[in-house]
């Protein structure tokens, strides 16, 4: 255990130090990323205003709150991508990571969670700007804030598991980009990334209850923006833990089969 904690802390420190060097590059990325929610926000607040101020329980102000929190949640959701897995398997770089005396997923998790500290730091001015421009309405209790803090890390872990599993398909076939795109399409619709789930048709909402996606976007955002009871808040965290456990179990299962498929020279 001690060994893992040491490893995580060092990896996180390394990633913070190296990512802070690339502030400009990181900012390019973040500004590009922020246009996506701004588009959704503009479209939906236009609709809310056209409808007399409210649509599906959201006003222009709560839409603004939703999509501003979205930007932080989205940043937390960035994990080692399936395209990264594809590259690492195709180029044989995985060989090097197999030399380490622990599962490569630990390095991914540690490195990206260190990066989050840089990202959050860079995100703050953007959040201030968006708040100033779009005037969100917030009503946050300390309990919601606490659950939000836990939920964004829960979302991070769930998405790490899901995207790693997706990326590991590359062990069996190299034509993966179409599968990835399909996955991201489903995620967009079923996670609350496109619109709050409550604006979706009922059957889509029902479907999303049985899938992990909404626990990575909709739930963490709603902890701050919505009005959930204490019980609902913690039940949500419970669902996140459940999905992390399911994801991790699948990951170790698939990994054992996958690694037998792997052959590479060099790397």
């Amino acid at each position: 255990m001690r060994r893992y904690i040491d490893f995580y802390l060092s990896s996180m420190r390394i990633s913070i130090l190296s990512q802070i060097q690339y502030r400009v590059a990181n900012y390019f990325y973040m500004i590009g990323m922020i246009t996506e929610p701004v588009i959704y926000l503009v479209v939906w607040s236009t609709i809310a205003n056209q409808q007399g101020g409210i649509v599906g329980g959201y006003t222009a102000g709560t839409f603004a709150a939703y999509y501003i929190v979205w930007t932080l949640v989205r940043n937390m959701n960035i994990v080692f991508t399936p395209f990264g897995w594809e590259w690492r398997i195709r180029e044989g770089n995985l060989s090097m990571e197999l030399m380490r005396p622990m599962h490569p997923i630990h390095n991914d998790i540690a490195y990206f969670s260190g990066w989050k500290f840089v990202v959050i730091l860079l995100w703050l001015p953007l959040a201030v700007f968006l708040t100033w421009v779009f005037k969100p309405t917030f009503d946050i209790t300390w309990m919601e804030a606490l659950v939000f803090f836990i939920a964004i890390w829960g979302a991070y872990l769930i998405r790490t598991m899901l995207l790693s599993l997706l990326g590991m398909i590359t062990f069996w076939t190299t034509r993966v980009s179409a599968i990835f795109e399909l996955y991201f399409g489903f995620e967009l619709i079923l996670s609350g990334r496109l619109v709050p789930m409550t604006l979706m048709p009922q059957w889509v909402q029902n479907l999303s209850n049985y899938l992990p996606f909404k626990w990575t976007f909709f739930f963490p955002i709603e902890t701050l923006v919505g009005a959930m009871s204490t019980q609902e808040l913690w039940a949500g965290v419970g669902m996140q833990v459940l999905w992390i456990t399911i994801g991790a179990s699948f990951l170790s299962l698939v990994w054992r089969a996958a690694i037998k498929q792997f052959s590479a020279v060099g790397g």
Partner: peptide, 28 residues
């Protein structure tokens, strides 16, 4: 600046705004 790979993301992000007519957006 040398490392500008992330510009691709910036462009794709901004280009996505073209999905809707620009008259929808606020002035700035």
């Amino acid at each position: 600046v040398i490392r500008v790979g992330d510009i691709v993301d910036l462009f794709q992000g901004l280009y996505a705004a073209g999905r809707w007519p620009v008259s929808v957006y606020p002035d700035w």
